[in-house]
Design a protein around this nucleic acid. Structure first.
Length: 1016
RNA sequence: GGGCGGUUAGCUCAGCUGGUAGAGCGCUUCGUUUACACCGAAGAUGUCGGGGGUUCGAAUCCCUCACCGCCCA
């Protein structure tokens, strides 16, 4: 057999992947030979996702840990899977439908749309899984999980019980009161028409405008407006009949509930408590709002006065709630001005009463959008508002009378998926009261039950959790786990009078119910995992109602309207038939779905079969390591911590390894818009998966962002080729792998075995501490620098001598160790070489990770070979510098040598002769026409005859001497410092003395050589 | 505004608990010697961002300044 000149990655990767799969090599527990388990949960990529370089990085690191543990015999599980990515998936499928010219989702309805998404998922949802396989990720693919598995809408083949876990947890937290529903200001995405969490909001600085408007004081009031400089000197004094407001969002003025100033702001003190007019809206119904004080306004920013729109701004919302200012909603779900609710006149009247301090109750029907602006998009409304105010002369103007509009950079919230400006909206949403479950998550990291690496990220974790806000978990989407809460009409109206007192309804009473009860009263709600369970709860509810209602059948309908229709119809029927068995009590389910991260938060237990008591759950939970990017620490890590601790009372993992973000060569974040995205699959095609993996690993310095360019990958592809060719050389010389560790006699062989032991210890130490880059660069230096550069070269002459057999055995074993140790980082080429070089019985993926150590190290061999290497390097350097033709074979004259040097020389003569291109060493004296080379304990002379240039040789030796002297002087200075000798550790002092001695030895030899040269 | 990180060879970066700097790429010269030109040999290049401090000793610890980046407000 002759090997090709290089590794054909493309062909081999596919073949090897198939072999791994056929052998079920990645199955949970494969190759287990000891009791301990090791489990890792993949951070689930979106089902819509495709592999980007960040995934490649993240999964390479996980795979290294997993393969390393599997080879060490741990019962290993790497759990793969995907999340259902609510918004993203809906977006993908809607776009596809639009492209095909199909009716949109509203036209086909929820069920049909969800069915389409499932169809899409089954057809295209495994893209990233297949890409991860190409990377070599050794997940147990048979267990691939999905956060929507087992949902009622799931088609065949999508079973699983993730849905059960999600619903179970929701119900549990609901029952504990940790999940609640409430009207809150949330981040509303007008494009997807759903609430999103603050983490899905990207605050970006954009070019915006700041308008300045005058809010006239009510009843023509005036005040002295005085501005002072830092020293208290008056810089401006004028009589004003208005208060000046700056805003970047004029359209929200319509919903203002107050103007706020800082309590210490002297400028406005005279008018606090007075009313002012919002300078927009029909003149006849101009609204007045109070001027209040609050700590929020910054007196130094703008005019120091802030308009308060509690329903459309988070800061304002805080001010409004603190001060009892009503929250007037202005927009609908699409970000357009509202058209619903009361007329502007009625609304303005109510708002005015509120401004005067009257309690006006619920203001959700109040619509303060003037008739002519209703239905307009928020930006069109803005334009109209500005025009109207300017026209009226209430814009603040400059000296020339032009309205003051500042162009400035403002920070605006954008939906991370939709890219549109987020609108703070007052809506009914479901929340997790995170305050109540955050404690254990903080404690677990504080007392190191979960370690976060690198440690600096702990701060971020703590900071976020210590200031945690309620988590909005409802999404107004169709794709996701529908909230398991049903509503029913509240029929227990307060003013119900049972005229006859007979506990039964007559027609009049029934009519009263219909009119008062159905339309105007609240609703009942119940939460349970199944409709059956919820039906029972409603039945208990209605049991208290007057008969015959109490025996109504609980049935499910689409929504509140349908419920009212059906109930009315049912009651009407009853009045005719008097047959109570036909009475129904309709209930409807909350249409919202849960935030995808709510399900991802249960990933560690959900993928292991919880809430069932599964063997996997018992064996692999808590999991060991979570490998993830920094960007996901809040989204996911913190939430998993909170949820697992709350639900099963344990941490989800004992270590979180946080890696950096892969950047381009210049350090810029990769982004589609910048066009600097590097596609990992392209790199795999070009250089092979091993080269890419090795590159990413060698860049994985803890806490740092790797910068990746194709050049780096190319360099490591060369490394793949290098070990391939070392194997090829071995193979050509009859070396085979698969043998037991030999116990050779020759120093070279003893030395390399010791080097293997060194690197094994270094590699394990690096992996144990998650220093992936140290593991990679250490192996690189060992394989290339030690094995290929020196050992293979040393072995060449040995193959012709009496040590040929032991050298073959040693080389076979050494290469086997290289394959084993490189396998977690470069699985394909090593698996291939493993198969090519021996009959092993099992694949390398199930090879036994070595555990030898110092016992294999022969210090004498170590010393001797390092000496030989130094001599060869010295000889080569001297030759090159003196311009000796590379091919010329020189005599090697030993002018001086101690015992150790003689032994080393005798044992390694052929090696030195071959690698330094010299004839066998013989004793002699330096003479004219020779150059000198100093080594520890020995001096050599090389006759280069007439080519010697005395001046050049002198210069070369002087340069060496100067360097040695400089180093020696430094060391001497240190040793002669009494404080150093007194304070430094003894080993350090010894080390310094040894170094100095060696240098002085060198200097002496150089000195001699120079003297000889001078004498010639 | 708060927090975190960075500033080391021409470029991209290592350098863990302080013991006087390394790798890859690039560059120069030489080389087809029984694996490999995706190679080998030899070589050049560093006030370790500036300033101060602790220490026998600082790229490494502390303070400070400058610039760059990220996160949160």
């Amino acid at each position: 057999m002759t090997m090709d000149k290089s590794f054909d990655a493309r062909a081999a990767e596919a073949r090897i992947s198939a072999e791994w799969e056929r052998a079920n090599a990645f199955a949970a527990g494969a190759n287990a030979s000891r009791g301990e388990s090791f489990s890792v949960m993949i951070p689930p990529p979106n089902v819509t996702g495709s592999l980007h370089i960040g995934h490649a990085f993240n999964n390479t690191l996980q795979d290294i840990l997993v393969r390393w543990h599997r080879m060490r015999g741990f019962d290993t599980l790497w759990q793969p899977g995907q999340d259902h990515a609510g918004i993203a998936t809906q977006m993908v499928v809607e776009r596809q439908m639009a492209l095909r010219g199909e009716p949109d989702r509203r036209e086909i309805g929820r069920d049909a749309f969800v069915e389409k998404i499932w169809a899409w998922k089954q057809e295209s949802g495994d893209t990233i899984i297949n890409q991860l396989k190409r990377l070599g990720a050794s997940c147990d693919w048979s267990r691939n999980a999905f956060t929507m598995s087992g949902a009622p809408s799931a088609p065949a083949g999508e079973d699983g019980n993730f849905h059960d876990a999600v619903i179970r947890v929701f119900v549990d937290l609901y029952d504990k009161g940790i999940i609640y529903r409430g009207k809150r200001l949330v981040n509303w995405d007008p494009h997807f028409e759903t609430a999103i969490s603050d983490l899905e909001v990207e605050n970006r600085e954009v070019q915006g405008h700041m308008w300045h408007f005058r809010y006239p004081l009510a009843d023509g009031e005036t005040y002295d407006y005085v501005e002072r400089d830092a020293d208290g000197n008056v810089t401006l004094r004028e009589t004003r009949d208005y208060i000046s407001i700056a805003t970047t969002r004029p359209e929200t003025m319509l919903g203002d509930g107050a103007v706020a100033v800082h309590p210490d702001d002297a400028r406005y003190a005279p008018i606090v408590g007075k009313l002012c007019e919002i300078p927009v809206g029909p003149k006849a119904h101009r609204r007045l709002i109070p001027i209040i004080t609050d700590d929020y306004p910054d007196p130094d920013f703008g005019s120091g006065a802030v308009k308060i729109t509690g329903a459309h701004d988070f800061n304002d919302h805080g001010v409004a709630t603190r001060n009892g200012i009503p929250l007037y909603a202005l927009m609908d779900g699409r970000g357009a001005m509202r058209e619903d609710g009361l007329s502007y006149e009625e609304s303005a009247a109510i708002a005015t009463r509120a401004a005067k301090g009257e309690d006006v109750g619920d203001v959700s029907a109040v619509n303060l959008v003037p008739t002519d602006l209703r239905g307009l998009d928020r930006y069109d409304a803005r334009k109209r508002v500005i025009e109207a105010i300017t026209e009226e002369g209430l814009a603040v103007t400059d000296a020339e009378g032009n309205p003051v509009v500042e162009s400035k950079r403002i920070v605006q919230p954008f939906g991370d998926r939709s890219g549109v400006v987020i609108e703070p909206m007052l809506t009914d949403q479901w929340f997790v009261d995170t305050q109540r479950i955050v404690g254990p998550a903080l404690a677990a990291v504080r007392d190191d039950r979960t370690r976060i690496l690198p440690e600096q990220h702990k701060k971020v974790y703590f900071h976020w959790l210590e200031n945690i806000e309620p988590w909005t978990i409802s999404r107004q989407l169709w794709w996701g786990h529908q909230i398991p809460v049903w509503y029913g009409l509240d029929l227990r109206i307060e003013n119900f009078v049972d005229d006859e007192g007979d506990g039964a309804l007559d027609e009049v009473e029934m009519f009263g119910l219909l009119v008062d009860g159905l339309v105007h009263t609240g609703r009942r709600q119940h939460c349970a995992a199944t409709f059956e369970a919820v039906r029972k709860k409603f039945r208990d509810d209605i049991a208290g109602l007057p008969q015959p209602l109490e025996i109504s059948r609980v049935v499910e309908v689409a929504d509140r309207e349908a419920a009212i229709d059906l109930l009315s119809q049912s009651l009407a029927d009853y009045t005719l038939s008097q047959d109570p068995t036909h009475l129904v009590y309709p209930v409807w389910r909350d249409p919202d779905v849960l935030d995808t991260w709510f399900s991802s938060g249960l990933w560690p237990i959900g993928t292991l079969g919880w809430p069932e008591d599964t063997p996997e759950m018992r064996k692999y939970f808590p999991t060991d390591v979570l490998v993830t990017g920094f960007d996901i620490i809040f989204f996911w890590v913190a939430r998993m911590m909170m949820m697992q601790l709350e639900v099963v009372g344990d941490v989800p993992f004992h270590t979180v390894y946080v890696h950096g973000l892969v950047r381009d060569e210049k350090g810029a974040k990769m982004s589609k818009s910048k066009g600097n995205v590097i596609d990992p699959l392209t790199l795999i095609d070009e250089y092979g998966a091993d080269a890419l993996r090795f590159t990413l690993t060698s860049m994985a310095a803890m806490g740092r962002d790797p910068r990746l360019g194709p050049k780096h990958v190319e360099a490591n592809r060369n490394f793949v080729t290098k070990i391939w060719n070392a194997t090829r050389f071995a193979e050509m010389n009859g070396v085979r792998g698969g043998g037991a560790r030999p116990e050779p006699q020759h120093t070279v062989n003893r030395w390399i075995i010791g080097e293997v032991a060194h690197i094994r210890q270094a590699t394990d130490a690096a992996l144990e501490t998650y220093r992936f880059n140290d593991a990679a660069t250490g192996l690189y230096a060992f394989v290339w620098g030690k094995v290929c550069d020196w050992y293979v070269e040393f072995a060449k002459p040995l193959f012709d001598g009496p040590e040929a057999e032991e050298t073959r055995a040693t080389m076979g074993w050494v290469l086997d160790q290289c394959y084993l140790m490189l396998h977690p980082i470069m699985p394909f080429v090593t698996e291939e070489l493993w198969a090519l070089t021996g009959d092993r019985g099992r694949m390398l993926v199930h090879g036994d990770w070595p555990d030898y150590g110092d016992e294999l190290i022969d210090p004498a061999a170590d010393r001797q070979m390092n000496w030989v290497i130094a001599v060869i390097e010295g000889l080569r350097s001297a030759r090159a510098q003196m311009g000796v033709p590379a091919g010329a074979r020189l005599d090697l004259i030993v002018t001086e040598a101690d015992e150790a040097a003689r032994t080393a020389l005798a044992a390694n003569g052929p090696l030195i002769e071959r690698l330094a291109r010299v004839n066998p060493a013989r004793d002699g004296v330096a003479a004219k026409g020779m150059i000198s080379v100093a080594a520890q304990g020995a001096s050599f002379a090389l006759p280069i005859e007439d080519v010697i240039d005395v001046a050049a040789e002198t210069a070369r030796l002087e340069k060496s001497r100067a360097k040695a002297r400089k180093d020696a002087d430094g060391l001497k200075a240190r040793l002669s410092n009494p404080k150093f000798v007194a304070n430094a550790e003894p080993e350090v002092i010894d080390e310094t003395r040894d170094k100095l001695a060696a240098l002085e030895d060198d200097i002496a030899r150089l000195q001699t050589a120079l003297a000889q040269l001078a004498a010639m």
